[in-house]
Write a protein that binds this DNA or RNA. Sequence first.
DNA 1: GTAGTATGTCGTAAATATACGTCTTATTCA
DNA 2: TGAATAAGACGTATATTTACGACATACTAC
Lengths: 115, 115
Amino acid sequence: MTYAKTSAFTEEQQQLARVAKALAHPARVAIIQLLASKTTCISGDIAAELPLSRTTVSQHLQELKALGLIKGEIDGLTVCYCLNTSLLQKVQQQFTAFFQEASASSVCASDDSCC
Amino acid sequence: MTYAKTSAFTEEQQQLARVAKALAHPARVAIIQLLASKTTCISGDIAAELPLSRTTVSQHLQELKALGLIKGEIDGLTVCYCLNTSLLQKVQQQFTAFFQEASASSVCASDDSCC
DNA sequence: GTAGTATGTCGTAAATATACGTCTTATTCA
DNA sequence: TGAATAAGACGTATATTTACGACATACTAC
């Protein structure tokens, strides 16, 4: 096993990395934006709006769903996806805290010369 | 070419995904936190503080550097890394805007039943 | 029941990411 | 000059991601 040494890091770091990975593909960013913009929670129409095959989009949806960022509800023949806004807010806080910590770095505050 | 259809998405989506990918590994999250916490801009000592080999850490550093999130400055024998705080602030704004848009989703505001 | 449609699952090929040992280069110091 | 050290470059093995076609399943409507 020359891979996946993630377990050696803190749970906090792993959690941030997991969410970041979910956003690490333009298709998934686009899916979230799409769900946020639509007034109705669309289903397979998502695939029609993206330059990817239905299968691939379905895969991306599963990844987002596995993390809990989106929710899917079966409505007869179609499946209705929507954002998990409460989780998204929690995630936003995590990212904000992380960036805050990083931006407030004491030493290299002056942006030009490092150290 | 059954890969990398990233070009089919907007520049905004690609940019967000690029940064997210940089944070999509606990080691890189840890590196940024380390740089933020240290009073001196450390170099290869970074490798000593992580459960990874020096080579692997160097690779992660290169990825962060390629995106501009960190800066490296040669100081004689050692190399001095530090955060690019101004870019980090810009990135933070991008993420904040994205999450804001997502959290403010109109339809599924009530978190329980979707749609 | 049967045809039609919407979705997900499975298998798979190609691209990338991760991790590390070794080698090369550059600088310091004796 | 020559030994020692720091750090990136290179090669490579393995794991994972991405993308998609084909198949299976579930529901609707006739």
